[in-house]
Design a protein around this nucleic acid. Structure first.
Lengths: 159, 159
DNA sequence: CATAATTGTTAGCCAAGGCTAAACTGTTTG
DNA sequence: CAAACAGTTTAGCCTTGGCTAACAATTATG
């Protein structure tokens, strides 16, 4: 352990991004991101399946492959994983459906996604950019920040 | 190709997150995120090495391992990659240094990171949360959004 | 200065998430 | 109703980014 704990442990939230955070805090940041990455893809699939079911009535592997710009083989493999995680049910060659848990995840993800998207638009980001950014950001926004984003969007609308 | 192009192709930026985006646009969103993921880790390493050099004068593998909460073996392997990409130079058992390209990347990453972090704080997110969120978000924020965030933060400060 | 502790590297393992090619199933249609 | 086409699955490959364990080099210390 070379890397001693910065200097003083004073809580200095006002000083800008200068000065390295203490090791443990820094470690938590990176670990949190790594962790998010593990669930990210899963959530994206589940969210998309939910959307397809809602808007199209069915969710076929081919649709998912097209929308995600990924091969059908990749989707097929992923569906197996989603099955094992009991997020979707699937009969071979038939549309997918979400389990209870899957539906819950889909709703949560969709809600997060929408909050971020609406927030970005309220900030003044143009639609096409906002959509791309929201897709990437949604998995990395804490509940605290999410709540603030929502409040901001609402205030923006009443004015 | 089952998934026909939603309905009308009218530009409707005002309607909420309802309705699926057209297939190609949707595909671009996901592809963009996938792409970001590939460079993300690299950027994080380079950024951290830059910070360590700046604040400590040296960047040792052990420090990186501690700060990233990852094994030394993982760091060692990663450093080999960074070497191949000509982002860092390293002699065994010596501190790392950034190449020109590495320094450039470190600065860019650091700048993005700071803009996002300051923005979140300006929004009212508490410091510890803002740090975690910024770490995850920074790689998924477009230049357009970044510029808006920066402006927002500045306005917030002059008031 | 010899040995202990720290730091770094290598080898070899694993899971995830891509891909292509080939095989199989279901549906449509001549 | 058979053949063609569209959709799905499987097999097998690759890269990334983790890990542990074992070994090597450097640095610190009794």
């Amino acid at each position: 352990m070379t890397d001693s704990n910065s200097q003083a442990s004073s809580s200095a939230p006002s000083i800008p991004g200068d000065a390295l955070p203490p090791v443990e805090q820094h470690a938590v940041q990176y670990a949190t991101v790594r962790n998010a990455h593990e669930t990210e893809l899963i959530e994206d699939y589940v969210e998309l399946i939910g959307d397809l079911l809602k808007h199209r009535g069915e969710a076929r592997a081919a649709d998912i492959a097209n929308r995600m710009a990924v091969s059908q083989a990749t989707v097929s493999k992923m569906i197996r994983r989603l099955n094992e995680l009991e997020l979707v049910t699937s009969k071979p060659y038939r549309s997918l459906f979400l389990t209870e848990a899957g539906q819950k995840m889909a709703e949560t993800s969709r809600a997060r996604h929408d909050i971020v998207l609406h927030f970005l638009r309220a900030l003044g980001v143009k639609d096409s950019t906002a959509r791309i950014d929201a897709e990437g950001m949604e998995h990395h926004v804490s509940d605290e920040t999410l709540a603030i984003m929502q409040r901001f969007t609402e205030q923006q609308q009443n004015s």
